[in-house]
Design a protein around this nucleic acid. Structure first.
Length: 357
DNA sequence: AACGCGGGGCT
DNA sequence: AGCCCAGCGTT
């Protein structure tokens, strides 16, 4: 290890011991189940957002076996609103595998941990180091940023070459005997000092040797290549009620909100007024043998996702006998809270549930 | 190698 | 509006 790398590592550990920056419920945790749970929740999710979810999951499922044995719909209800719902599905699969294959004892080898569903390079390194102090360097958004700036690396962090280069550097910097402490230090440092916007370079203990600071590249690094395309979608949700019941279904297709529930959906390519919508074949087919009465049309809802803008309108339609199609479940309105829904729908329900039935 | 996947906070 | 957040799985 070169002198400059030693300096970097020592300064980071020193900063952590003095500043002891962030307080989080899983910090210093040694229970691998709890560490794993926190890491799954925190994937692409800010600490403040994930925190209450972590508390609720620990409350409901104190052990990995408790989680493994929980009804799937109950777990999705707890995850509701957190986003990236594949994490929830994979988390359940992993919990069941740990329970079945490892008798509920969390595996303590890196390769075994990495092989679990929903655990990639980052989470495997995090669990291995935090729970078992195994010498694996974490590589998350914080680490990319700190390394790119301090060492002045402009290789795009979302390229294959970048992942390899930063990964090797991160591993080389890791003091093997203090893996947990070091990994915690560099992530906290990235979150508190070397922030994405307006990093506090003047007070930074690494600023004298920071290449980005020397070369005025702090705002430029790290480099990313991808620019994402945001597409617009228009959802018309039909809240079809039959007495005190309403039709819902689980989203199963390869699309957003997989495994969450929704009302009867007619998606259109553009904003469509209610007259045109009612004349459309999709609408006609639904009420072909059971005429519906449109009772209410909501104001438009807009939800901004990372990659899509969803415009949603809710249309309440009453029918007097069941629909012909078998694709939907008819559930009592009072039982809607047993199902997990995307944010747009829960927002609507919170505003209107009193008037629905 | 590229893409899809939520929701929220900050600028 | 754009960027980022304790990334991962699929194609």
């Amino acid at each position: 290890m070169t002198a400059s790398r030693l300096f970097f590592t020592e300064k980071l550990l020193e900063w952590n011991r003095e500043a002891n920056s962030r307080n989080m419920p899983w910090k210093g945790e040694k229970n691998p189940y709890r560490i794993w749970l926190s890491e799954i929740i925190l994937q692409q999710t800010r600490v403040e957002q994930g925190w209450p979810y972590y508390e609720r999951f620990i409350q409901h499922y104190p052990t990995v076996t408790d989680l493994a044995q929980a009804p799937e719909e109950e777990v999705f209800r707890l995850w509701q609103g957190l986003g990236y719902y594949a994490r929830c599905k994979n988390m359940l699969a992993a919990a069941r595998e740990i329970t079945d294959q490892y008798q509920g004892k969390f595996p303590d080898q890196y390769d075994q941990i990495k092989a679990l569903k929903g655990i990639g390079p980052y989470t495997a390194a995090a669990v291995a180091s935090f729970a078992f102090n195994l010498p694996h360097a974490v590589l998350d958004g914080n680490v990319y940023r700190v390394l790119a700036r301090y060492f002045g690396i402009d290789t795009p962090i979302d390229s294959t070459a970048g992942k390899k280069q930063f990964g090797e550097l991160a591993q080389a910097l890791l003091p093997a005997a203090a893996a947990a402490e070091y990994n915690q230090s560099i992530m906290d440092f990235g979150a508190v000092v070397c922030k994405p916007q307006q990093p506090t370079c003047n007070d930074c203990p690494l600023n004298r040797k920071c290449i980005a600071r020397q070369q005025q590249l702090v705002a430029v690094l790290p480099v990313k290549t991808k620019k994402l395309q945001i597409k617009k979608r228009y959802f018309n949700y039909l809240l079809v009620t039959l007495e005190d019941n309403i039709y819902i279904r689980k989203r199963t297709e390869n699309d957003i909100w997989q495994n969450l529930h929704e009302f009867i959906l007619i998606e259109t390519d553009e904003p469509t007024d209610i007259t045109h919508l009612q004349a459309a074949p999709a609408f006609q087919n639904i009420f072909k043998s059971s005429p519906g009465t449109v009772e209410n049309i909501s104001a438009p809802f807009k939800q901004q996702l990372t990659h899509q803008t969803i415009h949603t309108r809710f249309i309440t339609v009453a029918v007097k006998k069941p629909l012909a199609q078998q694709d939907w479940m008819l559930v009592p309105g009072t039982e809607l809270n047993n199902y997990a829904f995307p944010k747009t729908i829960t927002s609507f329900l919170q505003q209107h549930s009193m008037q629905l039935f």
